[in-house]
């Protein structure tokens, strides 16, 4: 799997490159700012882009803006954004284009090597990987909406769905039976007024409702 990496810190760029290579990714370019990133993406057409948020010149949200450009211009390229801080408003921007093939994680998560590589593979395969912290931030902004109808357990399940986990993943995370998870999921669909059509489609809709996108 081919990766383009954008990270302005030399130290982390080297560390991440090594991590990705050890994890079986093919790092075709490792660059230091958003302009170089866009050039590299245009040249290499990677499967996935890993990008830092704060980069030169202004050190604010260059990474997010570059990610949005990439998502609009190359819908097939998955984007995983890494940052020291995750922000709900950046997440909303990222998810506004499309909720598939997108990840937004705290940089700390890279230290959990296998978890991070799993998340990256999930994103590259068209899934989502949202940091639990950003999900928590999205949750505090819910107002009067169907979300209120969900029980705390169902909210927890929905949160894990938003993080991009499958039913198996949720079963594992919550340490409950597979049938219990299926029941929670169907309850969520019912409470969010999602018609019983294609399950995966409903799953995305539920997450979208949850994220308010």
């Amino acid at each position: 799997m081919r990766v383009v990496l954008a990270e302005d810190s030399v130290l982390l760029r080297a560390g991440l490159t090594k991590l990705l290579r050890d994890g079986g990714f093919d790092v075709v370019a490792a660059v230091a700012d958003a302009d170089q990133l866009l050039t590299a993406v245009d040249t290499h057409r990677p499967d996935v882009v890993v990008v830092d948020v704060r980069m030169p010149p202004t050190h604010t949200d260059e990474g997010i803006r570059a990610a949005l450009v990439i998502r609009r211009q190359y819908p097939k390229i998955a984007v995983c954004v890494l940052s020291q801080y995750v922000e709900e408003s950046y997440a909303t921007d990222l998810l506004s284009v499309d909720t598939s093939g997108v990840g937004y994680l705290l940089k700390d998560r890279v230290a959990r090597v296998s978890d991070f590589l799993d998340a990256l593979r999930r994103v590259a395969a068209g899934g989502t990987a949202l940091d639990p912290e950003v999900v928590a931030q999205l949750l505090v902004r819910r107002r009067d909406d169907p979300m209120r109808r969900l029980t705390p357990r169902e909210q927890e399940v929905l949160k894990l769905m938003a993080e991009g986990r499958s039913n198996n993943g949720i079963t594992e995370a919550l340490k409950v039976s597979h049938s219990a998870v299926e029941k929670y999921v169907s309850n969520i669909f019912a409470k969010l007024d999602l018609p019983p059509t294609d399950t995966d489609h409903r799953r995305v809709l539920a997450v979208l409702k949850y994220l308010g996108a």
Binding site: L12, L19, D22, D108, V110, V113
Partner: peptide, 23 residues
């Protein structure tokens, strides 16, 4: 800004290396 560009990057790098060593 100083913490972000300095200590935090170093700590991430440290945690990353330790994570790789652990794995």
């Amino acid at each position: 800004r100083d913490l972000h560009d300095g200590v935090q990057q170093r700590l991430v790098s440290l945690a990353l290396n330790l994570g790789m060593a652990r794995a």
